[in-house]
């Protein structure tokens, strides 16, 4: 299974954000998508999962054209996203959020235990009452525990305490080992450099640089691009 974007264009109403983005994510690799705020990273993820309509270009999953396919069918075809914001139904319980994400009750213990004990046994708690970091962990755990072949993780470490960033990194590495493809949208450059096999730098809706893990001077180049 391979996810490809070819000349992808998208935006909000009459405001274009992506101007012909092309890249791919194959199974068994982690591709880090980095870029400054407002570069269009979240727009790209929302277009890939189908919440924003592509105004041009093509999206392919496993060779099939999914550019006009509704999100629910993309999910069933093996795509899964964990969003930077609004990733949970805050008024529903943790358990109901997991059920909506396709996890039967028998799996809840495993999903909630993915990042240590902090979420364990909290199925009945309203998701909106979890801390910001816990909500991010729940959304990430739900996506990682799914059977999706390609995972789109939009800033999963935002708001996480350092120990949980490490656990999340381990979980993403395990997903790669299992043969899944991960698009990791990340501002946390150290984590991206530790995990990713390839890098794509997005700037003003266009890909301005790419790189491969192990390339000489890659960290400095990416830091420069992000103006850290």
């Amino acid at each position: 299974m391979r996810f490809e974007a070819h000349g992808l264009r998208s935006g909000y109403g009459s405001v274009p954000v992506l101007h012909g983005v092309s890249f791919c994510v194959a199974q068994g690799e982690i591709v880090a998508l980095v870029g400054r705020n407002g570069a269009g990273k979240t727009t790209l993820v929302r277009t890939m999962i189908g919440l924003l309509r592509a105004t041009g270009g093509q999206l392919r999953l496993g060779g099939a054209d999914i550019t006009r396919v509704p999100p629910s069918r993309r999910v069933r075809a093996g795509l899964r996203a964990a969003f930077q914001e609004r990733s949970l139904f805050s008024q529903f319980s943790v358990g109901d959020n997991l059920r909506l994400s396709g996890h039967p009750p028998a799996e809840h213990g495993r999903v909630l235990g993915m990042f240590g004990e902090s979420l364990a046994g909290r199925e009945a708690q309203r998701a909106g009452t979890l801390s910001g970091g816990e909500q991010k962990m729940l959304a990430a755990a739900s996506a990682l525990a799914s059977t999706a072949s390609i995972l789109l993780m939009d800033e999963p470490t935002e708001g996480l305490q350092p120990s949980n960033v490490g656990l999340l990194g381990d979980a993403l590495a395990l997903a790669r080992q299992q043969g899944r493809g991960v698009l990791l949208v990340e501002q946390h450059l150290a984590l991206a450099l530790r995990l990713a096999d390839r890098f794509v730098v997005l700037e003003k809706g266009e890909i301005v640089d790419t790189g491969t893990a192990g390339e000489a001077g890659l960290g400095d180049r990416l830091s420069g691009r992000l103006a850290l």
Partner: peptide, 16 residues
């Protein structure tokens, strides 16, 4: 109820 609460998120969860 999920669709009413957040249709986009429900879509992204694979809800028909």
């Amino acid at each position: 109820r999920a669709i009413v609460a957040d249709r986009d998120l429900a879509d992204a969860c694979g809800v028909r």
